[in-house]
Design a protein around this nucleic acid. Structure first.
Length: 233
DNA sequence: AATCGGCTCAACCGCTATTGT
DNA sequence: GACAATAGCGGTTGAGCCGAT
């Protein structure tokens, strides 16, 4: 495939963003939306590639981003979602409103992974690395059976959502968003999560097995009841 | 005060998926 | 259907900060 390179090397700036650049990007997006990221930098007067602009916006400048320390609840949610979804950070991010996949990924790599290792838990399998005490075993049995169930559910749900998305292309549904959501967040994790929250009927359409492609890590909205039950463990 | 090492996190890179022609 | 352009994802890097020595 003729894929364009990450950034044309011709004089485009790299590295940390300056406040002026942030301001230019923000001002442009507020006025016009991002439209085509590829075309945005020249229109906004930025010497950056579109990808860099998109990253800056989604990971830092978006108004619906919460920054700062992760709460205990968020931390537990990440641990449990990671046990279920693996390193699918964007999928995990859909369940943590206002957190970006990049932020969650960083937090996982710098804090949670180490914490689990310290506790004698394999951060990949989420199983005890050695024979821990009986209490741990019982706890993990509960978790594993729950997670296994949830994983099946998740796979099936992905397929259903995929079908739903295809239907929407044919027959677009009216948008119900009304919050801080900028016009540019339509394809972001948070946006999709909120969007799909109103489409939970898809669960009724669950197939028996699935092969949700790895790349399709968008649109993970869980029914609150199930997610709530899941996060209790 | 200097410097060393570990940690954090914003940003980059390479890839795949999706969309358009 | 083939190809090109674009969007998005996950892994990795490196600059800057901070505490220990």
């Amino acid at each position: 495939m003729g894929r364009s390179p990450y950034c044309d090397s011709s004089g485009l700036k790299k590295g940390p963003w300056t406040p002026e650049e942030d301001h230019k990007l923000l001002a442009y997006i507020h006025q016009h939306g991002h439209g085509s990221w590829r075309a945005l930098p020249s229109k906004a007067g930025l010497e950056r590639c579109g990808k860099s602009c998109r990253l800056r916006w989604t990971n830092y400048l978006r108004p619906d981003i919460k920054r700062g320390k992760f709460s205990l609840q968020e931390e537990q949610a990440i641990e449990q979602l990671h046990a279920l979804l693996g390193n699918r950070w964007s999928a995990i991010a859909t369940h943590l409103p206002k957190r970006t996949d990049n932020e969650i990924k960083n937090y996982w790599n710098t804090h949670l992974k180490k914490k689990l290792i310290k506790m004698g838990i394999d951060p990949i399998t989420h199983k005890p690395t050695k024979n821990n005490n009986e209490e741990m075993k019982v706890k993990n049995n509960i978790n594993n059976s729950t997670l296994s169930h949830m994983a099946q559910w998740e796979t099936a749900r992905l397929e259903a959502e995929e079908r739903l998305a295809r239907q929407h292309k044919i027959q677009p549904i009216p948008s119900s968003s009304g919050g801080v959501e900028s016009p540019t967040t339509s394809s972001t994790a948070t946006g999709n999560c909120q969007h799909l929250a109103g489409e939970r009927g898809v669960a009724d359409d669950l197939p028996s097995s699935g092969s949700g492609s790895a790349g399709e890590s968008k649109n993970y909205g869980w029914p609150d009841t199930i997610l709530g039950e899941f996060l209790r463990f």
